[in-house]
Amino acid sequence: MKSAMIFRLLMLAGGLALALLPSFAQAAPPVERVFRIEASSFAYKPGQIQLNLGDRVTLELVSMDVVHGLYLDGYDLSLTADPGQTARLTFVADRAGSFRFRCNVTCGAMHPFMIGKLTVGPNHSFTLAAGLTISAIAIFLLIHPRRASQ
């Protein structure tokens, strides 16, 4: 009984740590970065991009087959590139978390699912959500211990 209690408290502590600690993590100093993203139906290569908060980023969108685009969630930025005409966009990654980027030029059937992911800093969106989920379930088990151990 006692060990079950300790387990739940540890779970709560772990969850809260996961939710909150990444915000205090020592951020790497901002740098200039250039990413070349190759777009072809229906994928970006690379599909995932990792940055640090404050980085000055240039995205180079290179279309490999037909006209594609890129819309970055959260930053509300967009780009369009024809094959042979690389499109460039520079911005400062000043919002932490993970953001989807999506093709914004209809490029065939699977176009709505042509999606990539840009993560700024540690993936706050995920660590916060996962930490909160674990904490929530720990609190739930603390509140309803009897039912749980029936």
Binding site: S63, D65, G84
Partner: peptide, 16 residues
């Protein structure tokens, strides 16, 4: 518009 997709944006014959 018409050539770079094959001949490359910088003319190197290395277009997409």
């Amino acid at each position: 518009q018409n050539c770079a997709a094959c001949h490359g944006e910088t003319g190197g014959g290395d277009g997409v």
